[in-house]
Design a protein around this nucleic acid. Structure first.
Length: 337
DNA sequence: AAGAGGTCCAACCGCTCCGCA
DNA sequence: TTGCGGAGCGGTTGGACCTCT
């Protein structure tokens, strides 16, 4: 297919538009409409290619363009739509009146993408990043050094250093783990890595922080079936010093409904200390795939350990819809979801 | 105060889609 | 059915602006 030559033509101006050029373009379009973009520059007495004119008009001069910061509603809309349709900026723009695809794209690249990465989500899939699971076996092995060391005498200093290294490694792992504990992709179980609940639990229990406050005893384990790790993680999450690493005031809490969805709930949300006896079902470990589309934040979905009352979505009190109401009625949502 | 590094965003580039002959 | 050309889209760039040291 032949390449459009319009921008390659010699003598046509490129670069930033001057106010005079803007005025010519606006005047012409207001009088005649844009018609054929290719013909427009000559008719409007502009030394630009039609493509440049179209871009200038649609991204900047159009009278209905909304300027200024994106609202939280708009941000949520973009996140939601992007999780479903990906980088279809023009489609996303049709759901944000006054915003251009270019503006949304820029906002995504400069803000939202980074936010998701900071939260531990893959910005393309909107799923928790699982790359650290790849190194889990090594971390477990590292944790097992503790046992090895018991059989191999080291001088006291070396022993202490090694012990600290092990604890640090484990804490680092746990930090990653907690950031992703919200969900584990249905296709990516621990079993895949050959790691048992018990091994993970041993890791948790071997850390002083856990030993001091959160250790589970064997009878608890027996009583709680196969969800040892879920419970251990849950308890750890409610330890103030740990939770503080998880919550990020910069991140709208309401994106975390990935944690609590119609199709499954993350373990730590289902095993609140106040919900004794709540034994999470197996589906607790399963997140909808590829992404929760209709998530609801409830008063009880997230508890802050430092706060006796529950944390509610910052976008409304009580049980609130996470997504703007109109999305449930929007034909495109039915179409694409 | 100045320079380095980071951030933001308007604009460009090149590709695909789609209508038409 | 095929090829052409215009329109639109998404990725990328470059420069202005901001922040930090």
């Amino acid at each position: 297919m032949g390449r459009s030559p319009c921008c390659d033509e010699n003598g046509l101006k490129k670069g930033p538009w001057t106010p005079e050029e803007d005025q010519k373009l606006v005047d012409y379009i207001q009088k005649h409409g844009h018609g054929s973009w290719r013909a427009l520059p000559k008719l409007a007495d502009l030394n630009r290619c039609g493509k440049s004119c179209r871009l200038r008009w649609t991204n900047y001069l159009r009278p209905d363009i909304k300027r200024g910061k994106f609202s939280q509603d708009e941000e949520q809309t973009i996140l939601h739509l992007h999780s479903i349709i990906g980088n279809k900026w023009s489609t996303i723009a049709t759901h944000l009146p006054g915003r251009t695809d270019n503006e949304i794209k820029n906002f995504w690249n400069t803000h939202l993408k980074k936010k998701l990465i900071q939260m531990g989500f893959d910005p393309m899939t909107h799923q928790p990043r699982t790359d650290f699971f790849d190194s889990l076996p090594q971390l477990i092995a590292l944790a097992n050094l503790r046992n090895l060391m018991e059989h191999r005498p080291l001088d006291e200093h070396a022993m202490r250093l090694q012990e600290e290294a092990v604890q640090l490694a484990k804490l680092q792992y746990l930090q990653n783990l907690l950031q992703s504990a919200a969900s584990i992709p249905s296709t990516n179980s621990y079993g895949q890595n050959g790691i048992t609940d018990m091994e993970v639990l041993n890791l948790l229990n071997s850390i002083p922080l856990v030993e001091e406050n959160l250790v589970l005893n064997s009878s608890e384990l027996e009583n709680q079936g196969s969800n040892h790790f879920a419970n251990a993680t849950s308890q750890l999450l409610h330890h103030p010093s740990v939770f503080s690493q998880l919550s990020d005031p910069q991140v709208p809490f309401s994106y975390q409904p990935s944690l609590n969805t119609e199709m499954g709930q993350a373990p730590f949300l289902t095993t609140m200390p106040s919900q004794e006896g709540n034994n999470p079902s197996d589906s607790s470990w399963v997140l909808p795939s590829p992404t929760p589309v209709l998530a609801t934040v409830t008063d009880t979905s997230i508890s802050n350990p430092g706060d006796a009352s529950s944390t509610t979505s910052s976008y409304g009190g009580g049980t609130s819809s996470y997504w703007p109401e109109h999305f449930f009625e929007d034909p495109i949502m039915h179409e694409i979801s």
